[in-house]
């Protein structure tokens, strides 16, 4: 049972890590916490649903949905955030809230206020067992996909010119621009990556929840924000560490708290976050150039 709970924790932590990473990438470059990140997930979810309704095979539908998330992120930057470039942190934050609220209302009024069921292929609800130990296919996929995405991102940042430029921009954007790398390209790439991560996270999220609804982005973006802050705002390894930590604490508490205390679970988790920040005010793995939103 303990091993089972560890798998649960890693599976949830992986999804949180993907989400926190999506927030952290954009934050490290432009200093914006994009609260509309959750709506990128919602959009990918609806794209998956639409692709399935149009009869695309499941893998193709997933591909379409993830690309939709990435494209939407670029569009969001172009339409909402580029005109605000250089604005204060507060203005950027408010812009992201505005985009988020706007998209929620568009989803509610344009699609439906009611959640839409997404029929996952039946093999995804299956489980395989070793002895008396059962692992669901869903959690396994979550773990594998999160791990692959983290490795791919790391390779991209280490091995490509634009990746290197992005890491440099996170430390000192102006110097990178002096080196002749266009700012717009770096920022667009940051949004593209965050959109890809949001799309992937959305697939894992929807696979576990079997429905998409207009408000589904709210909880994940909140969790991602907490994870990113705990990890160290703007630090990519920090976001991953924060995501896993949050997932592990949540599952641990859910598994062990007696029923009478269980309703206070979220309060306990958030108290834990405060405790971590008291000991390490810059987060678990602070960013090289610390910024505060």
């Amino acid at each position: 049972m303990i091993a089972q709970q560890i798998i649960n924790a890693v599976s949830l932590g992986g999804v949180y890590a993907l989400l926190a990473l999506g927030l952290a990438i954009v934050f490290s470059i432009v200093g914006l916490i994009n609260f509309a990140h959750g709506e990128l997930m919602t959009l990918s979810g609806y794209a998956l649903l639409a692709a399935l309704v149009f009869g695309l095979p499941f893998p193709a539908a997933v591909l379409v949905a993830v690309s939709c998330g990435a494209l939407a992120a670029i569009a969001m930057e172009r339409v909402a955030f580029r005109p605000m470039r250089g604005a204060s942190v507060t203005s950027l934050l408010l812009t992201s809230f505005a985009v988020s609220s706007l998209l929620k209302v568009v989803f509610q009024n344009g699609i439906s206020a009611r959640p839409q069921a997404v029929a996952m292929p039946s093999w995804m609800t299956g489980a395989f067992s070793f002895g008396d130990f059962t692992i669901g296919v869903g959690p396994s996929i979550s773990i594998v996909v999160s791990a692959l995405a983290l490795i791919a991102l790391e390779l991209f940042l280490r091995r490509t010119v634009i990746g290197t430029a992005m890491r440099a921009a996170a430390e000192d954007f102006n110097v990178v621009r002096l080196m002749g790398i266009p700012a717009s390209r770096i920022i667009a790439t940051a949004f593209l990556l965050s959109g890809l991560l949001a799309g992937l996270a959305a697939m894992l999220w929807v696979a576990q929840r079997a429905s998409v609804d207009p408000l589904m982005g709210f909880t994940p973006v909140l969790k991602a924000f907490i994870a990113a802050v705990v990890g160290g705002l703007g630090s990519l390894p920090g976001a991953v560490a924060g995501g896993f930590l949050l997932g592990i604490i949540e599952v641990l508490l859910q598994a062990t708290l007696p029923a009478a205390v269980a309703p206070y679970r979220d309060a306990i988790v958030l108290s834990g976050v405060i405790a971590v920040l008291l000991v390490r005010p810059q987060g678990l793995i602070p960013a090289v150039r610390v910024q505060r939103s």
């Binding site: 089972q4 599976s11 994940p220 997932g247 949540e250 599952v251 641990l252 859910q254």
Partner: peptide, 19 residues
């Protein structure tokens, strides 16, 4: 008996308890 938070993403811990 088990509890959940509305909007909670993950029921795995609760389900493991049931099992």
């Amino acid at each position: 008996r088990g509890t959940f938070t509305m909007g909670q993403p993950d029921f795995s811990a609760e389900i493991t308890n049931i099992k």
